[in-house]
Amino acid sequence: MHELGIVFHIIKTIEDVAAEQNLTRVSKVVLEVGEVSAVIPEYLQDCWQWACRRSPLMNGSVLQNEIIPAVTYCESCGKTYETVKHAKVCPHCGSEQTYLLEGNGVQIREIEAE
């Protein structure tokens, strides 16, 4: 279960921050989920509920997913385009010399805690 592993890593990262900053309760986590990150937000929510119940620090915290659109850059014409719509081939000039600029990552933007 791919999403479960991701949830475990998020909780571990937050537990480390909580230990450093003497936090006892986390009420909300804002996550940036890339459009082509291969992470399914609905599955993430299911795993979140399950995993947070097992952590006193995280129990009851809400997960908010912000979707980051995927953008690809074309080296041939220097323009960018929507990755999901056009994939590898640049819609402006037809080149395949393209690479993903953003939208494949998963990042914890911020947490609300006390």
Binding site: H9, L23, E110, I111
Partner: peptide
């Protein structure tokens, strides 16, 4: 309750 900016990759601990 306070907001803490993290901007941490989920695999940072890994």
């Amino acid at each position: 309750m306070k907001t803490i900016k993290l901007n941490a990759s989920v695999t940072a601990s890994n």
